[in-house]
């Protein structure tokens, strides 16, 4: 029997082209499997093969979403594959967005099954999880070994055109699709069983999870800029030279509060970024390109804004848990209240 043909998408890191300094690498195609494609091939047990691997820098994809997708779709089309797979991206945000976006683009253009894998907090899950199969993985590449069998199994099912089971059975994120089936126990029995477990503090699984709409109402605009105190907050990891608080380059456990009183410009050698996961060359050379102290100081002098808050707040957004980010920001907000701040400019890398 002929093997199913698979095209695999990976980033510059897994493609062994390089780290962040190569994140601008444009899409290229190589024949056969590369990097994680070798481990994935082992899962196919001869039933499928990776005929080509497309490698693209995460920065390149995210900054050129439309043109990158168009170019990659053509590379995939040339191979006429049965299935397209991307990643897995774990908790790498830009890689996850790229994997989700390219899967959707390939599915729409070529009408073939697609799948990828990532960690539940990866923004790619919220953005694409309803439209494509995204296998749930751990938050780092240490989870490669446990992710590949799940991806491989689902990929073969998709290639064979088999019926795909429920998300909890197959290991992908729920797409919000309901399928009719006959339960053995009737609804009232199941509801009472759940209630009894709940009363006994035992774990139970709801049959109807409530959607979570975590939205915050927009605050009113500031009325008079010329008297406003504007504060800067960043997830781009800008810190004084030497990173005195030792903020981690990924999965940050803390944030820093830094005085910019009397500082007109964040100059090279005095400020730098602690952030991993993006090329730090520009930020280390001129941190104003992440924390725009120079122009806000000018605007303060010109009377356009009342003042630039004497402190800014900084953490590293690379793989940092949502729960940590919430906690950091809630603490920052208390300090901003004490400092009579009017509005916040938040910058992200």
């Amino acid at each position: 029997m002929e093997k199913f043909k698979v095209v695999h998408y990976i980033n510059q890191f897994f493609g062994q082209i390089g780290g962040e300094e190569m994140a601008t690498h444009p899409p290229e195609k190589r024949s056969g499997p590369v990097g994680p494609g070798l481990g994935l091939t082992a899962q196919f047990k001869g039933e499928a093969e990776i005929v080509a691997t497309i490698i693209c820098g995460d920065g390149y994809y995210n900054e050129n979403m439309d043109s990158a997708a168009a170019a990659i779709v053509e590379m995939v089309r040339e191979e006429q594959p049965d299935v397209f797979v991307a990643g897995p991206a774990f908790n790498a945000g830009r890689y996850g967005v790229a994997c989700g976006a390219i899967c959707k683009a390939v599915k729409d253009a070529l009408q073939i099954p697609v799948l990828t894998g990532m960690y539940e907090e990866n923004p790619g899950v919220d953005m694409y999880g309803k439209e494509i199969y995204i296998v749930s993985t751990r938050d780092s590449a240490a989870g490669m070994r446990s992710a590949l069998p799940v991806i491989g199994k689902l990929l073969l099912k998709l290639a064979r055109g088999e019926r795909i089971g429920a998300s909890v059975e197959e290991g992908y994120f729920s797409q919000g699709i309901r399928v009719n089936f006959f339960e053995e126990k009737r609804g009232s029995t199941r509801a009472v069983e759940m209630l009894v477990k709940k009363l006994a503090d035992e774990p139970f699984v709801t049959e109807y999870p409530m959607p979570s709409f975590d939205r915050v109402d927009p605050m009113p605009a500031i009325k008079d800029l010329s008297t406003a105190n504007i504060a800067i907050v960043t997830s781009g990891g800008i810190v004084p030279h030497g990173n005195p608080d030792r903020i981690e380059s990924s999965s940050a456990s803390k944030y820093g509060e830094y005085s910019i009183e009397g500082v007109a410009d964040l100059v090279v050698g005095e400020w730098e970024t602690a952030h991993g996961g993006y090329d730090p060359t520009a930020a280390n050379h001129d941190a104003d390109c992440v924390v725009p102290v120079d122009v806000l100081r000018d605007m303060e002098q010109e009377g356009i804004i009342g003042k630039l808050n004497p402190y800014f707040y900084s953490t590293v957004g690379n793989g940092t848990a949502v729960a940590s980010s919430k906690q950091f920001a809630a603490e920052m907000a208390q300090k901003l209240i004490e400092q009579n701040v009017s509005a916040v400019i938040l910058t992200s890398t």
Partner: peptide
């Protein structure tokens, strides 16, 4: 972070490259 700061009462302008 944008939401938590706004929740505390500040209007927040989020400057970012990947707006989606």
């Amino acid at each position: 972070m944008a939401k938590e700061i706004e929740r505390a009462g500040f209007p927040v302008a989020h400057i970012c490259t990947v707006t989606p």
